[in-house]
Structure formats: structure tokens, C-alpha cells
Amino acid sequence: MAPDPVMLDRVNGLARKIRRSVLERSRAANVGHIGSSLSVVEILATLWGGLMREAGTHRPDRDRFVLCKGHAALALYAAMHHSGIMTAETLATYCADGTHLGVHPEACLEGIDVATGSLGQGLSVACGLAHGLRLRRSPARVFALLSDAECNEGQVWEAAQFAAHHGLSHLTAIIDLNGSQALGPTREVLNLSPMAARWEAFGWEAVEVDGHDTAGLAQVLAPRGVGKPRVVVARTVLGKGVRYMEGQVAWHYLSMTAAQFDEAISGLEAA
């Protein structure tokens, strides 16, 4: 079923705001991890822009979101801000002394259920949430956003086996397949290809999608029948939306100069 055009408009608008906020806050704090925050902008916009039910509330049946790749927390903060869950004042404290908005998310923040930052651990927590919610007969869904290199971690595959064995069909993992990790391209560091086939071999339903196409994302992330857990392998570009960052491994860590920031914003406005 084609996604609702009104919702898509909202999601696309949200994505533009998130991308701009990521650049602004990163520049203000002089903190990196820009590239991997920009690669997940459309994924977060699709989830937080209406697909997740009761996101950011305390209701027991709210959908849960686990940012397994915790280093993209800036994009999550921006998504929560532009979804009305976090104030501009709070967002403005990103990485300032005394803030709760660090590079990796803390669970004391309204709307964040799981603190992350150590790769490979989030999907297990998502499995526990999904299993517990199902036992409680909750209709809640659980979403876990992983980085591709995070799948180097053995614990990811422990969790993958568990989810498949227990048929956690209300659990959806999303892999941010930006092909880049801290010290180089994933294919050179530890080749993960073919990503979808690996998950299928572990008993998951795998679907590939352009990770910057919100219509495609909305379709594959929509609720569906019972059966297997689903993994959405989202092909993305590190640093998406900023021409000089796109696909450049260095932007995993770098922060922007004033001139680079101006160039990035000009590029967004011209797009």
C-alpha cells in the first residue's frame, strides 16, 4: 500500500529540519559523528514523523525505539525536537557542560527508553522489550537502528538468533548500510556483504531499501502480519546531504570549521 501523501510531506519536512539541526548543533558544540548522524536522517524522520505510535510518551503500549548505533544520537535529539518531544532549549545544550545530551543517548531523557553507546548491545535489549511486551499482550512494536559495522559484534548475532527462534515479528531491525566505519570502508575492514542474506540465513525476513527514500522506508516499516522478525537493510550515504562529506570516512569523526559549516548550509538551502 502506498504511504499517505500527507504523512510523506510531513516526514520529508521533518527530515529537512533534522538535517539542518544536526549541522547547527554539531557546529555549535564542535563535535563530530556528523556523517553517521546524517546517514540516518530519513530513517528517523519516517519513524518519529508518525509511524511509531505514542512515541515519546510514558504509555505502556507505546512503540519502542532503540538507537543501537548510539553515536548518531544528535540526529535522534533533532528528530525528537522537531517532533515536539524535546524543547529547543534542551537541544541547544548538546554536549555542553552539565547536559544530558551527550554524544550517546542517556535513558533519563524524556522519550529515550534505552541508553546506548557500546555497539552490539542494543538489539538484545530490544529483544527483551519485544518478548516482554508480547507476554504483556501489548500491541507495541519495537524498532532497533543498527549501524552496519555494528554487525561485526558477535552479540548482534546472538540476538538475531533469539528473535528468529521466538518469532518476534513485532521487532524490526534497521541496518544503516552506509558502508563506512571508523577506520575505513566496511568492505575493507571486515566485509559484511551480503548483509541481507546473512540475516535471512539467521531466520529473519530481510528487505532492502534506499535509506533516503522516505516513501520506500514508510512501506517497509509499516505494520504487517505475524511471522518472522524483519530487518530493513537501508542503503545510505555517510554524510548524506553535504556534498563534501558524502562517502568520506573522515566525517565519521571530524567536526566542521566555520567555512565548512556555511558551505554545508548553503548546500542544503540550494537542494
Binding site: 538484545s124 535489549v125 527483551g128 522489550l129 516482554g132 511486551l133 504483556r136 501489548s138 552479540q155 533469539f162
Partner: peptide
């Protein structure tokens, strides 16, 4: 390791 994570999630829902 997965068991510790699952327990974390289970505790989060009570």
C-alpha cells in the same frame, strides 16, 4: 551477553 540484554529489556517492562 544476549541474556543480560534481554533481562534489561524485560526489566524495563516491569
Amino acid at each position: 551477553q544476549n541474556m543480560a540484554g534481554i533481562a534489561t529489556g524485560l526489566a524495563m517492562v516491569g
